[in-house]
Design a binder for these strands. Structure first.
Lengths: 108, 108
DNA sequence: TATATTTGCAACTGATTGATTGCAAATTAA
DNA sequence: TTAATTTGCAATCAATCAGTTGCAAATATA
């Protein structure tokens, strides 16, 4: 696979689409009406999001309703985890400084 | 330049750089040695990351040490928040289904 | 001083991207 | 059936991107 979820959310239009279809399923035409681009441009974005497994699709006749498959979003969160740990550790280090200061106070 | 943090993390090399300099500050040369690209390519990535305010730099003589400015990472987390709420709501809806089932059991 | 090291900037290249137009397949309605 | 609607796919284009080479500025070392 060429594209990953980080490239998928790099484009602002795609991010807007993801937000739009997070609450309700919409057809490509309905999505395109919300933006200032052609239907085909939106269709391309949908294709990319689909390749990244970010969409659930439901066909009813000639219409296709797309909705966000939210599980894939967790991969971004998982990548952020390693940094969260670092910034949590910084708080811990700050705690340690405060503890050391307090210990010194008690020694005096 | 209209680059944002989402474009910054779209490139796999830049994501690797961010991880690399999250634990310790490194010079562009030291960073470039870790990857299979030229120093200038890394320097370009550093410039982009710097424009997105993802770096702290500390000059010592002719060397420049770069380290991750972790605060900016929170913007990604903040964008994810709106989706977390949705997937939390789904859990709540699942809870409600289970509660309803249990209530019916008690009624029998 | 002269020389080596570290870095950023400019120019160039090949590949990719976002968007457009046009067209064909599938479905629905007259 | 015929006509209209919805969608996906192919071809195309301008802009951007990641990478390279070369060079100049600043700093450290002989």
């Amino acid at each position: 696979m060429k594209r990953d979820i980080f490239q998928a959310i790099a484009d602002p239009t795609r991010r807007a689409i993801l937000v739009l279809i997070s609450s309700s399923a919409l057809t490509p035409n309905a999505i395109a009406e919300k933006f200032n681009v052609t239907r085909q441009a939106v269709s391309k974005h949908i294709k990319i999001l689909n390749e990244c497994e970010l969409l659930e699709e439901r066909k009813t006749g000639r219409e296709i309703y797309y909705q966000l498959k939210i599980d894939k979003m967790k991969e971004i969160d998982q990548w952020l985890e390693q940094f969260k740990q670092i910034w949590a550790n910084r708080f811990n280090q700050l705690d340690q400084v405060l503890i050391n200061l307090k210990t010194k106070e008690n020694e005096n």
